[in-house]
Design a protein around this nucleic acid. Structure first.
Length: 564
RNA sequence: GCGCUGAUAGCUCAGCUGGAUAGAGCAACUGCCUUCUAAGCAGUAGGCCAGGGGUUCGAAUCCCUUUCAGCGCGCCA
């Protein structure tokens, strides 16, 4: 909600409490502790702009029927100098409050004044928040899950920035460990196959099958020729990895950039292996007595922190596990870099890892509640009504790059943020490619384009908006106008709510509703008319609506064309 | 076997920490363009909120349970 609206609810709470006091003084209500009560917006607008359940929840303590309590409060409440014009008693004892004209006028003024900052708040108090997302394996191209994670993470970051957090975007690059080994083995096999024939060089069973591996090997061969055929296998693999890995990372960076995503940092897992922090983290656990040796491996006592079994940190062969590195990485986020809060976006198939990771934070003496993991369900890609399978291994899977070749970025970013992370979603390729009304992103953009068109058409006749007087703004009394202004007034609160819930989908829904309310207004109220005062007020309403639509779209890095 | 998610209109999904007759968009049907973009609006139809218990003034929402679905329980990442 706008500052106005927010003030209105805290103010209202105070007014209700004062009314109860007067009612007690007048001996209409007995002295009794007042329980917690809510002030919320009813789904049905005819039930007021704010409704309170005070009479119902206090029925017990006052030993009176809710209706009676409501009547007493209503008769004692003083609404002068507030944003409310009246209070009604309804249903089982709800108190329904209605905004007065001044409220609507002030909402519009506030948006005019704050402009592209409207919606921003200091709710987050500038806390340092890291959002780590996508973090795809650099061993191959990114898939559809990464596409969803990218849209989600990036928009969430912008959302939290708007809510007053100091946001940091990070990509964790798994450039160490087992899968890099596999990567090397796969590259090596493809490289050798080029010279020795596919039938003479077996491809590793657990190798990466993708076409991209062949391509990288071929590029490498083009540069280096056959000089590595007889080389030491370790050297050969290292050379191949050193060639291919940076290129894969660059490709991801390029693809994500095309997608509108720029990270503050690409954090290499290998840095933690090399700078001693991995060892530090392990030592920290050992010092606290949470490790032991068994079967030649170093174990972490995860069972002390809620897990069903302990976990290996250092394998028998001396190599640290992924989990050990991940512990060190998260320790780095909190201890070394001092983030107040860290959000990880993971695929839902990693949910088993969440409790372990949080447990490990506790084991290190860190507050695990500062680590939040958003689990993202998989995306089902559909086309022509059929599910398109995706697999990183088949080499035929639809990749993020392919998606962006087909689907406009605006469309992808919006559609991936239509559903909550935790719900499985269907991504309809046909719909995403379609540049028409069925695609919600166009519906929203169209509303804004319409506004631009109105402004342009009126300007052509010399009618331009100028600062509104109260008198003019008080002319906006139609239901469609009121509904639209009311919705505009809630934007800041919606941002805060969405930030609290880590849920950008809340905002895509908000802006769709905003577009709908504008279209309804457009249909019911003509801007151009005989009354210049009303025209000016409506033109201003159009302008502030456009401001809010643009604020949302800009926040999500979606374009807002002036004409369509 | 243990655990994590989820189940709401034909389809895709909302429904905020319990609130007033359960919502939207697609799809179907009916209307609305000599007036600011019809990429729009209005209307009709569509529901035992998976089943069953409980908690209370009040449950789609909270608790228990059953069924079904997806996933996880590696010295993989």
């Amino acid at each position: 909600m706008s500052k106005r609206a927010e003030q209105s609810t805290t103010h209202l709470r105070m007014l209700i409490l004062e009314a109860i006091s007067s009612a007690i003084k007048a001996e209409e209500l007995p002295e009794a502790p007042i329980p917690n009560f809510s002030i919320e917006m009813p789904a049905d607008r005819s039930h007021g702009d704010w409704a309170s359940n005070i009479a119902m929840v206090s029925a017990k303590t006052f030993h009176l029927p809710p209706q009676k309590i409501a009547e007493s409060i209503a008769s004692h409440i003083v609404l002068d100098n507030s944003y409310f014009k009246c209070c009604e008693i309804a249903g089982p004892g709800f108190l329904n409050f209605f905004f007065n004209q001044q409220f609507y006028a002030d909402v519009i003024r506030e948006i005019v004044q704050t402009g592209d900052q409207y919606g921003h708040s200091d709710y987050g108090q500038n806390q340092k928040v890291m959002i780590e997302f996508v973090s795809a394996n650099p061993t191959g191209p990114m898939h559809m899950g990464n596409a969803r994670g990218g849209a989600l993470g990036d928009c969430l970051a912008s959302l939290m920035h708007a809510a007053g957090y100091d946001v940091w975007r990070e990509f964790y690059v798994n450039d160490a460990g087992n899968q890099i080994e596999k990567f090397g083995n796969s590259l090596e096999a493809r490289y050798l196959q080029l010279y020795l024939g596919e039938e003479n060089v077996p491809f590793p069973e657990d190798g990466y099958q993708g076409q991209d591996i062949k391509e990288r090997a071929a590029e490498f061969a083009k540069i280096n020729g056959d000089q590595f055929i007889g080389a030491d296998p370790t050297m050969r693999k290292k050379a191949l990895i050193d060639y291919a890995l940076p290129r894969n990372i660059e490709k991801m960076e390029r693809d994500l950039h095309k997608y509108g995503i720029t990270y503050d940092q690409w954090f290499l897992e290998s840095t933690i292996h090399n700078n001693g922090e991995l060892q530090e983290a392990i030592s920290a656990l050992t010092e606290r007595g949470y490790t032991y040796e068994k079967d030649g491996a170093l174990w972490y006592k995860a069972t002390l922190f809620g897990s069903e079994k302990d976990d290996v940190l250092v394998r028998q062969n001396g190599n640290p596990t992924y989990f050990a590195a991940d512990i060190a990485y998260h320790r780095n986020k909190f201890v070394k870099r001092g983030f107040d809060r860290c959000i990880d976006i993971w695929g839902a198939d990693h949910h088993g890892h969440v409790a372990r990771m949080k447990g490990a934070m506790e084991a290190l003496g860190l507050d695990s509640s500062k680590l939040d993991v958003i689990l993202m369900q998989l995306v089902r890609l559909t086309q022509n009504g059929e599910i398109v399978r995706m697999s990183k291994r088949t080499g035929k899977a639809i990749q993020l790059g392919d998606l962006l070749d087909e689907v406009p970025v605006d469309s992808a970013r919006f559609l991936f943020n239509m559903r909550e992370a935790n719900s499985q979603m269907e991504f309809d390729l046909d719909l995403a490619v379609k540049q028409d009304a069925q695609n919600p992103v166009y519906y929203v953009q169209y509303a804004r384009a319409r506004i631009c068109s109105i402004i342009k058409a009126l300007a052509a006749d010399g009618i331009t908006p100028h600062p509104c007087t109260d008198e003019e703004l008080h002319l906006l009394t139609a239901t469609e106008e009121r509904e639209l202004i009311l919705h505009l007034s809630r934007y800041t609160a919606e941002i805060i709510q969405a930030a609290k819930d880590y849920n950008p989908a809340h905002i895509t829904r908000y802006v769709i509703t905003l577009a709908t309310l504008f279209h309804k207004f457009y249909d019911a109220c003509r801007v151009r008319g005989d009354n210049p005062n009303l025209t000016n007020a409506r033109l201003t309403l159009c302008t502030v609506t456009s401001t809010v639509i643009c604020n949302v779209l800009r926040m999500f890095k979606i374009s807002a064309p002036e004409s369509m």
